[in-house]
């Protein structure tokens, strides 16, 4: 167990989140079970008031979770200085077996909590509060991945061992890796890049055809292949090294922290594409702004990642 100030900050906020999440969970279950919009009982009025506490708490958690995700990566990056063998966050994350799952949970939770908030917003915009039962059911469910994330994070830091020698991203993100990551490298990178642009194009087409389901689907696939193609192809152009495939080193100062920009645009784009789409499916009302935000940020992401190889080619006249 290592106690750097960063880890203490993360753990302290985890404890705070857990405390509030438990309150919100208990209230959510109660509201879900007892909610009756037509009742004029004191219980119903009390539930209405409590529903505000839940949404305040969730907003608080979500708003902090976004910077905390970046801060988590930053912390791992910093720890990589102490841990032998690790060159960036990737090595630190992978030094514990479930490190990658922790990151995955963190990402999924961002989508889930964001989704909850837009459902909440849609709910509050209608007099009949049509999604109240749904949203509290959702939170009762989302509570578990949140607890899982917090639990994983605590045990992650507890089992971090500075004296253990870990692999650096160079071996993790390569065909030589023993994990399933190696699978990615067995496929030709042009195929993956092709698929990535295909889904990017599909997002665009769905936008112009105003086809909601295709848009949601295309955004989901776009998110997945954006990450995969970033690892196997685009990252090498950021590093200008054909063998460096790390998705974490992008966040380092040497590359002007371009990763922060890439990941935020990708998240915003796909979040509004998927969650906004699902919400519209629910409300049966179209809110053009969601899709517009989505297409803008998806597009922005494409432009950023495309620029790297193109600029490289223009400067050097060859591809990596």
């Amino acid at each position: 167990m290592t106690m750097t100030p960063e880890i203490i900050a993360l753990l302290m906020l985890d404890a705070l989140f857990l405390f509030f999440a438990i309150i919100a969970f208990v209230l959510s279950v109660r509201i879900f079970v007892k909610w009756n919009r037509h009742a004029t009982t004191p219980v119903q009025y009390a539930l209405e008031k409590q529903s505000y506490l839940v949404s305040v708490v969730i907003k608080y958690i979500f708003v902090l979770k976004i910077p905390l995700f970046l801060f988590f990566i930053f912390t791992c990056d910093k720890l990589s200085n102490i841990i032998t063998g690790a060159m960036c966050a990737a090595g630190v994350v992978n030094s514990v077996e479930f490190g990658l799952y922790l990151t995955l949970f963190k990402i999924i939770n961002l989508y889930l909590f964001g989704f909850w908030l837009i459902v909440n917003r849609a709910d509050m915009q209608e007099e009949k509060l049509p999604f109240t039962k749904l949203k509290f059911l959702l939170f009762s469910l989302f509570f578990f991945p949140l607890v899982a994330e917090i639990g994983l994070e605590i045990s992650f830091f507890a089992s971090l061992n500075i004296s253990k020698i870990v692999s650096c991203c160079g071996t993790l993100f390569s065909a030589a890796s023993t994990s399933y990551l190696a699978l990615l490298f067995s496929v030709d990178s042009t195929v993956i890049v092709g698929i990535f642009y295909f889904f990017a194009a599909l997002v665009g087409v769905a936008y112009f055809l105003k086809n909601r389901l295709v848009f949601i689907f295309a955004n989901g696939m776009f998110a997945i292949f954006a990450i995969i193609s970033l690892i196997v192809f685009f990252s090498t152009y950021v590093y200008e090294l054909p063998t460096h495939n790390c998705p974490f080193c992008l966040l380092q100062k040497e590359y002007y922290g371009i990763g922060y920009l890439m990941y935020s645009t990708l998240f915003i784009g796909t979040f509004f594409g998927m969650c906004g789409g699902i919400l519209e499916e629910l409300t049966r009302r179209s809110d053009v702004s969601f899709f517009t935000i989505s297409i803008i940020f998806d597009g922005l992401y494409c432009v950023i990642v495309t620029l790297y190889p193109v600029v490289y080619y223009l400067n050097n006249g060859v591809w990596l």
Binding site: P5, E6, L13, L16, Y52, L53, V57, L64, P67
Partner: peptide
């Protein structure tokens, strides 16, 4: 700076949530 910020401001705001509500 972000470390210091995260160690302080969220805790204060967290403490105000329930009284505010």
């Amino acid at each position: 700076l972000s470390l210091l910020f995260l160690l302080s401001v969220p805790i204060y705001i967290g403490a105000t949530l329930i009284p505010t509500w």
